[in-house]
Design a protein around this nucleic acid. Structure first.
Lengths: 115, 115
DNA sequence: GAAACGTGCAAGTATCCGGTTGCATGTCTG
DNA sequence: CAGACATGCAACCGGATACTTGCACGTTTC
């Protein structure tokens, strides 16, 4: 049922899965191309690069599984569109970690300065 | 010489590598624990979880390779500390993508509304 | 110095990942 | 209908990954 979840937008907020999906140069490039908001078909996305259409398909499925992308079948082709929600989620996680670090640093500074 | 790079802070700004390092629940948990700024030894980090000390060591080496963490040998133990630079880098990348998406969405909206 | 502690190194294993190729299926278009 | 086009499915392969176990080596500590 994970495909349905990804398609319906009920992807679980799993930071590790999102980061894992982002942790590949090819997928990052695909996302970058899709981040202009225009949905594209698989072969359209595969034509530019040097890898097979099948490889692109697999990468798109991974991105879809992480909720970073949504697919919509239109006739004989299926178009993939970028979805910003999970990116926001990932940013939120990074913000949390950064914030905690900054807090710790601030506390350390305060301690050193004798506050 | 990658160990030296990671130790001296000259890690290359490769978003995919950083995301790949973040794309594992165990590593994410380690980073989360280290993000309070307090360096910890390997066995201290391994004691809490249910995996071997060796597994923790490998994960820490991965994080170190991505520049997310720095190691410092102190006597018989080596302490690992969180490094915020790469996290900032990753956030900046996500910000870029998000911004582009928002721009594209804004332009699309404007176009649809006949502006 | 001996025991305990923290770590590193090496080998081994099962699984996942990125990528390919070959073939079958559905869908437009002439 | 026939051919071109877009995709899906399945098998396969080489390399990376996540772990483990076993052992050796430096470092405290008593």
């Amino acid at each position: 049922m994970s495909r349905l979840e990804a398609a319906t937008g009920a992807a679980p907020p799993d930071p590790a899965a999102v980061f894992a999906a982002l942790g590949d140069p090819t997928r990052l490039a695909l996302l970058d191309r899709l981040s202009d908001g225009r949905p594209r078909s698989i072969s359209a996305l595969a034509s530019g690069g040097d890898i097979t259409r099948q490889a692109v398909t697999k990468h798109l499925r991974v991105l879809e599984g992480a909720g970073l992308v949504a697919s919509l079948r239109e006739g004989r082709e299926s178009r993939f569109a970028y979805r910003p929600e999970q990116v926001r989620q990932a940013r939120a996680w990074l913000d949390t970690v950064s914030a905690r670090w900054d807090d710790a640093l601030g506390r350390l500074k305060a301690f050193v300065e004798g506050v």
